[in-house]
């Protein structure tokens, strides 16, 4: 049977040999040591793992366990290499990037903040549609949608302002995405010190929210949004 190398993460520790939990498909967690860090992997029997809740949770559990005792550069779900030689090749190729990523994320975790509104913005903007009989009225209808949407985005920013204002002292880096089409109007990822996790939640908990939107906080996550081995993406 062919075995493939399922990769979970690179951690900044060498003194790890065994783990209390298994990985995806209950496979044993193994360690590939390279210079100053270790690559955590399992041997599995498939080249591509389906996106199933069970497997995703197993992947996440491994990362959570690793995060407790080390800095973690997480790998996406279903990152699979073909051989042990590929592990070495990978470490050789990305050694400098791995080290610089560890510098950037040392002692940190990622927290997520999503803001959801009760009604889809684009639906709301289309509510008062008028029948288009000709080109002019078609464009005026579109223009009304356009201006409604613009006003909504301004409203979103007003909603987000107190949240960001309350956490800005804790945030080392952030990545934000505003969404004018849909219920999730804001999606933010925040890199913070591990020790500030509770304070981060507390800051958001203490805010008064309007009835028309909901704030969802997630994490701590490994810093997915703030690590990259891609030369073009620097964080």
């Amino acid at each position: 049977m062919i075995e493939y190398y399922y990769i979970y993460a690179v951690i900044n520790k060498l003194d790890v040999n065994s783990f209390d939990i298994g990985g995806v498909k209950e496979a044993q967690l193994l360690v590939y040591k390279y210079k100053d860090y270790s690559l955590i992997y399992s041997l599995i029997d498939t080249r591509k793992l389906e996106t199933e809740y069970k497997y995703l949770m197993q992947h996440e559990e491994v990362l959570e366990m690793l995060m407790e005792k080390s800095d973690v550069i997480p790998f996406s779900f279903s990152t699979i290499l073909l051989s042990e030689a590929s592990l070495e090749k990978f470490c050789n190729k990305y050694n400098d990037k791995i080290l610089s990523n560890f510098e950037n994320i040392s002692g940190t975790v990622e927290m997520g903040v999503k803001i959801l509104i009760s009604k889809n913005i684009s639906d709301e903007c289309k509510e008062n549609d008028i029948e288009e009989s000709n080109g002019y009225s078609y464009m005026i209808k579109k223009f009304k949608e356009f201006t409604n949407k613009k006003n909504k985005i301004e409203e979103i920013k007003q909603k987000i302002y107190p949240i960001e204002n309350s956490i800005y002292k804790l945030v080392i880096k952030d990545k934000k995405k505003y969404n004018e089409n849909g219920k999730i109007i804001f999606n933010g990822a925040y890199l913070i010190e591990k020790e500030n996790m509770d304070l981060f939640r507390e800051c958001i908990n203490n805010l008064e929210h309007g009835e028309d939107f909901e704030v969802m906080v997630s994490g701590p996550w490994p810093p997915y949004s703030f690590v990259s081995l891609d030369e073009r993406r620097e964080y």
């Binding site: 000709n134 080109g135 002019y136 078609y138 464009m139 356009f146």
Partner: peptide, 23 residues
């Protein structure tokens, strides 16, 4: 086109023509 309508830089005739094209 929306930005141009907002800035009043299109005549009614131009808006009509653009509208028909988009439709």
């Amino acid at each position: 086109a929306m930005n141009r309508i907002e800035n009043n830089s299109l005549s009614e005739q131009e808006i009509e023509e653009l509208g028909l094209t988009f439709m």
